[in-house]
Design a binder for these strands. Sequence first.
DNA 1: TACAATTTCACCCTATCGGGTAATTGTGCA
DNA 2: TGCACAATTACCCGATAGGGTGAAATTGTA
Lengths: 211, 211
Amino acid sequence: MAISLVIFEDNHPLRQSLEVLLNDGVHFQVTGAFGECTLASDQVQLLKPDLVLMDINMPGLSGIEGLKNIKQTSPETKIIMYTVLEDDNVIFDCMCAGADGYLLKNTPPAKIIQALEEAVNGGAPMSPGVAAKVLAFFRNSLPGNNYNLTKREAEILQHLVNGLSYKMIADASFISVDTVKKHLKNIYAKLHVSCGTEAVAKAIREKIVNF
Amino acid sequence: MAISLVIFEDNHPLRQSLEVLLNDGVHFQVTGAFGECTLASDQVQLLKPDLVLMDINMPGLSGIEGLKNIKQTSPETKIIMYTVLEDDNVIFDCMCAGADGYLLKNTPPAKIIQALEEAVNGGAPMSPGVAAKVLAFFRNSLPGNNYNLTKREAEILQHLVNGLSYKMIADASFISVDTVKKHLKNIYAKLHVSCGTEAVAKAIREKIVNF
DNA sequence: TACAATTTCACCCTATCGGGTAATTGTGCA
DNA sequence: TGCACAATTACCCGATAGGGTGAAATTGTA
């Protein structure tokens, strides 16, 4: 059975090219093609396509907003972002908003078809450079860990991040409150912060503690 | 010029199959193939391959440990994980440890060749299901945002996360310290926490604030 | 064994935090 | 018009946080 498809792309010639390419009646069937995504969620809810191909840079509502709106009303519909943009923040926003794939517009037609089929089969097609950027988000997740914190200091900091007060940390670590205070003073100095909330934020940001 | 390649795979027949497949002398040249990765970082440092194909489930040192060791001494070498495991935690660990791709062992030979070439060209080849799991990590990254925080409360909380004291928040927001105090009291109640550090940790954990 | 680093504890002191209570505005909604 | 709620300010008060200073006990290691 053919995969039903809706296209959002403001560029007329490109939109028509995509229709011609994808509306082969065998693998795919394009049931809608729009130049802007202001009403995207309604249109998708009505047409119930298996797949949506969504441009990002469009007049009016951005494709990312369209993505969010569609996912709210039709979370089961697969949405592939299709754009020239290879900006880290844009990619990140799309992924967080629930995109099921991210194809650059320089993708050759054969690859597009392959990617769309992959998407409906539970995959997450991404252009090579995009996939690399996605992995990069993880990589920066545990490189430069410590600020020369001792084992004990790391423990105390972990407790602080977990929301414990000085007194609670003291009880949990079987030491006096004064010792906790002393440790935290040293920790604050090592992290170059001046209070607990700042330390917690920095500890989490820089993956100094388990989170 | 051929892409030089080192293989870590404990299964003899599979390792030989991979060598036969990849050691075509044109696209690829297999310069090493080992049954375990205890000495992986030394071997890679010596052979300086463009690419490493790394099994995960091996006797002795795990492929993930091998990955970490190699990345420490030869960070520029691309490493593709090659395994039957499709476990979320394993995938997550590999990505954080710096893997440049993740292929399942059911990948057809033609796709493997395609993937390896993609990897050396700055891509990040992943089997469809794996890519989907990777994106899933992001999806759960900012869905349930608010605890019915008002706009002002969100601002105050953001400042707290940024490490500002009550007084500094007051100055930054052009309101009195008492108002800040009042807001934070309400915020703590809404977040079900009892102090600033706890609020910061929760706000970051649950993506309530920009980070 | 001697040295250094770490961990521990104590005391003092002030600013800040955080809860309680109460009151005044402005806005949107019924 | 009246109500609910957000946002604002104020005051009181006790507990906590965090800095300064000093020193003993523990650990690891040369």
